[in-house]
Amino acid sequence: MLKAILFDLDGTLLMNNFDLFMKNYFSLLMEEFKKIGDEKDLFKNLNFAIEKMLANKGPKTNYDVFWEEFTKLTGKDRKYMEDFFMDFYSKKFPLLKELSQARANSYAKEVVEKSFELGLKVVIATNAVFPLIAIKERLKWANLINYPYDLITSMEVMHSCKPNLEYYKEILERINVTPEKTLMVGNDIKEDLSASKLGILTFLYTPHNNLILNLDHKPDFMGDLKDLFKLLPLLSK
C-alpha cells in the first residue's frame, strides 16, 4: 500500500523548455553580475560552486557547500552575496515564466490533489540546487503553491542532489516512509529513476505514452499524469 509520493517539478508537474529556462536564467544573472564585478569571472566561479554542490553527500547542506565554495572562489562577502541572490530571485527570476514558456501540466493539479485526498505524504522532489524562494516561484507557475507538502527539497534543507542515492535516502528519513511504500514520479531517466536502486517504486512521465527502450533503470510504471491519476487509487489500497 502506497504511503508517499515524490514529484519531480520541471518537465513533470511544470512544462517548460528547460534548456531555454537555463539559458535565460544565466543571461539574467549575468546582467546582474555586471553591477557588482567581472560577470565572466563570477559566472565561472558560480559554475564551479554548483559542481561542488552537485557532488555533495553531506554532512553540510547543499546551501552551505555552495556558499562556502562560491565565496572562497570570488572573495565576496557571503552575506552580501546572499542578499544579492535573494534580490535576484525576488525581482528577476519571475521573468523566466514567460521567457521559458512555462505552463502547468494539465493534469498536475488533479494528481497532486488526488494524492492528498488518498492520504499520501506528498513531496516536491525537485533537484536540490535552487533555494526555496525559486522553487516556490516555479510552483506558482504550475498552480501548485498552496498545498501542505510534507517536504520541498530545496538546497537549504538537503545534503545531496539527484541522482545521488543519498538524496532519496534523506527524503525517506525525513518523511519516515519505507522505499517500497514510496513512488517517485519524474521525467528524467537518470535523475528520477535512480530512486529505484533503493527499492522506491518509479513512474516515468512520458507524454503521449512514448515508449522508451534500453533504460538503465526500468520504471515500474510509465505514462502521462492522466494515467497516474487513474493508477494512484489502485496503488493506495
Rank of each mutant, 00 (worst) to 15 (best):
F85E: 03
G58I: 12
T61L: 09
A55Q: 11
N105I: 03
K226A: 13
F43T: 06
M30G: 10
D64W: 07
E113Q: 13
Y149Q: 01
P59V: 09
L42F: 00
E110N: 10
Y147M: 05
A108W: 03
Y63P: 01
S27V: 09
E117R: 09
A108K: 12
E98W: 05
A104R: 12
L14S: 08
L42P: 00
H208T: 10
F93W: 06
K92P: 11
F116D: 00
T74P: 07
I133N: 05
I36P: 06
W141G: 01
L132T: 07
E191L: 10
K197L: 14
Y205V: 14
E156T: 08
L6P: 00
N214Q: 12
P207D: 06
K121H: 09
L232M: 05
A128V: 10
F70H: 02
L225K: 05
E170D: 13
D38P: 11
N45F: 13
T153P: 04
A134W: 10
L235R: 11
P163N: 02
E51R: 15
I133S: 10
F70Y: 15
Y25M: 13
K109I: 15
K140Q: 11
E110K: 15
I36V: 15
K181V: 08
T182K: 09
D10T: 06
S27N: 14
E113A: 12
L139E: 01
I200V: 07
I152S: 00
K35E: 14
I5D: 00
K76W: 06
K91I: 03
E82L: 14
L165V: 13
L193I: 10
L29H: 00
D192E: 08
M222Y: 15
L20K: 12
I145Q: 10
D19I: 10
L204Y: 03
M158I: 11
L165N: 05
A195N: 04
L213T: 13
Y167K: 06
F203H: 08
E191N: 13
D220S: 09
M155L: 11
V157Q: 05
E156V: 05
F21M: 13
F66R: 07
N24P: 01
N105S: 05
D41L: 15
F7K: 00
K76H: 08
N164Y: 13
L20H: 08
